[in-house]
Design a protein around this nucleic acid. Sequence first.
DNA 1: GAAATGACTTTCATTCATGAAAGTCAGTTT
DNA 2: AAACTGACTTTCATGAATGAAAGTCATTTC
Lengths: 279, 279
Amino acid sequence: MNESHFSLDDLLLLLDVADAGSLTGAAQRRGVPLPTLSRRMTRLERDSGRVLFLRGKAGYALTAEGRALAAEAAELRAVRRRVALWADAGHGPAPVRITAGTWTSRHLARALSPGRNPLWLPLFLPSNAPLDLARREADIGIRNRPPDSSRLARRRLRRIGYAVYGSSAEVTGYVAQPDGPGLAASQRWLRAEHGDEIATTASDLRLCLDLALAGFGRVVLPCFAGDAETGLRRLSDPIAALAHDEWLVSHHEARHDPPVRAALDTIARTLSAAPPGDD
Amino acid sequence: MNESHFSLDDLLLLLDVADAGSLTGAAQRRGVPLPTLSRRMTRLERDSGRVLFLRGKAGYALTAEGRALAAEAAELRAVRRRVALWADAGHGPAPVRITAGTWTSRHLARALSPGRNPLWLPLFLPSNAPLDLARREADIGIRNRPPDSSRLARRRLRRIGYAVYGSSAEVTGYVAQPDGPGLAASQRWLRAEHGDEIATTASDLRLCLDLALAGFGRVVLPCFAGDAETGLRRLSDPIAALAHDEWLVSHHEARHDPPVRAALDTIARTLSAAPPGDD
DNA sequence: GAAATGACTTTCATTCATGAAAGTCAGTTT
DNA sequence: AAACTGACTTTCATGAATGAAAGTCATTTC
């Protein structure tokens, strides 16, 4: 019924007046001219249609209904404080949303040292949902092929090779993800080539790795991930059908955002310096 | 360092723009003219000294730093919603702060039926601290003598009589509060008249009652409280030295506050209708 | 009992924000 | 290629909020 919303700034002043107990006190503490306070509080009462203050020679005191409103608005104090801290803090790290596959995400998470990122902070989004960079659902994506949209900036990184890994050469069978839509290319390849050798499945890729480490079967992994796993040995030549380039993708305009730009640079450096998987 | 605080209303608009993804969308949803939105967001950026939005043909998108600010201000959405509910809700119960002695508080808490108080809700303040009604630390007080200040409205209620109670006539000794400042008159009388018969003490008056019910000793209680306790029997005549009138006190201006006025009326009715203690 | 104090309200000129309409610009449609 | 569309910015006259100073009113002090 009521469409006229209240000014949160006025509500914040109401809290200040309530704390101070008088317009004079609140005006001094907040640096707001006293007449302005008087008018804002009166307007609040007019708009709400209720008496919020008792005006007396001692000052302004909240009525019972005023206290009810103050209780609803009490959080504003905390928000003011937090925003002021944000404003004063000299450019704390800004969150940059990154979407990448499981292994690339892990690699990045290990390679980016937190101490040396004053400008940005990586924020890894869940990699299962295919996020739309054109719709700004993420700032930076790492994909296995260049994007369709012309709005997206792209940059080729290292070439990724895949191979079969296992805890030892004696291990037979494979650990795979359960079949379903949205399966990665390496998993589709595994089901096509060795579908009858799948010993067990886990929907979480990290869990597949754990199973392989425990000897439940072999896994197909990007070489940069598999080679880095001390408990695993490479058990095959690189799989030619799966080799692909890795692409760093972002919205074209996002490159004007300093934290995103810094993140792009750092990620590009990180994922190029790494020894490329064999072709 | 930064003294210029931000307008919470502008921050709320920032959240709306972030949600909508464009000024146009936010302007329609919130009923704010689009030029105003443009200016407010620009001002926010100027005041914070940071780029908060990426402006593109698709609309406004938050930068990484803009998202950091939005995270700090996210609660504002909830506050807006709660305040709007408060404004729309047809006068929900307003809290009325009441300060009274232990037994009167309990009597009131039992006598006031919660279902029939659409206008106000009793809020009992801790009765140990002597709250100053003149300084508006409470809305309504129930005292054993008329107030000093002429600023306070007063109204005489029933007369309160005191007597000695115990679980049976055979019980000897007394249960009292430990000595100290701020002791009630009945406790002072007990220490003066039967100080050498005090068997045990408890700083909480309710605990004294529990001890008396368990047979640890006798207690001095207002008759309206002692008579209502089924496990207790009156073991003495009313104590003439302790009888006093009960006074309903409030700030003079508080009577212009409808919830407080309603509470005063209800309390006065409740504490007059009750059978008065003997004189 | 008159003056001073404290707390708020009112007045009024000024400043600032508003909002309707016109302007810009990039991408899309015909 | 020209016109259109969508999204924002700019312009400018208007209206609203501001703030300094004067005005009220009840209490406190001398």
